[in-house]
């Protein structure tokens, strides 16, 4: 078993009085692609926000490469090599496509990804490089969001609902690009509502239900009926 890159230890998350995550335990090894599935409100996005530091946690609850990072600020976590492709893309509307990508690279981490590499991965972005990011189609915007995260040359990339609101043909284009991304040795965690899509690209899957891990297993051995039960919480 390769070295763990990320360990979650009894991770709780709160929004004010509301508790969204309850004692999540997770181990992610270097180079793995992990799918996180679950119904709406299961805590998937909260999990992404916690790992990327947008929600504060106790230091020891999130351990990255042996370092407790739970209490760090989001920008410190980004510096250490975790990048988030946020839900809803969150592009910078005042900036052009190219500027959006360049902002992603300003952490100054070395690695394989550069503006040229991103344009090779998504050639359409090169054509549109001087356009305002928000004048692009939804799929192209998603490409900018992914490219922007890659520009930081992260070791761990978090995808939060990258297929949300996109046409199936666009989703396919984006998912086709994933192997090229994780093929570079990057570890990835992928939040996805579309279970089939999620399972097709991942090696391991966690299912969340009401803030708790309801199922965990290797993608090839996991049983679809178990998933359905874990997903909807219907104990038979």
């Amino acid at each position: 078993m390769p070295e763990p890159i990320l360990q979650l230890r009894v991770l709780d998350a709160h929004y004010g009085d509301f508790q969204a995550l309850f004692g999540i335990d997770m181990d992610v090894s270097d180079g793995e692609v992990i799918a996180i599935i679950g119904a709406n409100g299961a805590g998937k996005t909260t999990l992404m926000r916690s790992i990327s530091g947008l929600l504060p946690n106790a230091a020891a609850q999130i351990v990255y490469r042996g370092q407790p990072i739970g209490a760090l600020r989001a920008d410190q976590i980004a510096q250490s090599g975790i990048a988030l492709v946020p839900e809803g893309r969150q592009l910078f509307p005042s900036l052009s496509v190219e500027e959006n990508l360049l902002i992603g690279g300003q952490v100054g981490r070395k690695g394989p990804w550069s503006l040229e590499q991103i344009f090779q991965l998504f050639p359409v972005l090169k054509e549109r490089r001087n356009q305002a990011a928000t004048t692009l189609s939804g799929g192209q915007q998603q490409m900018v969001a992914i490219g922007r995260a890659l520009m930081a040359n992260p070791d761990l990339i978090l995808f939060d609902e990258i297929s949300l609101g996109l046409a199936p043909v666009i989703i396919k284009t984006i998912y086709d690009a994933l192997p090229q991304i994780v093929g570079q040795g990057m570890t990835a965690m992928l939040v996805e509502q579309d279970i089939t899509k999620a399972l097709s690209v991942s090696s391991r899957v966690y299912c969340l239900q009401e803030g708790r891990v309801s199922l965990e297993g290797r993608t090839e051995t996991i049983d679809r009926d178990d998933i359905t039960r874990a997903y909807f919480g219907t104990e038979s």
Binding site: L54, D75, P93, S94
Partner: peptide, 25 residues
Amino acid sequence: SRRGLTLTAIRDSEVAAAGLGINIW
């Protein structure tokens, strides 16, 4: 300048800016 770019980014979306390693504070 480059710092101006990050400032615009922060104005547009603090969440995304922080997630990209920009020290907002």
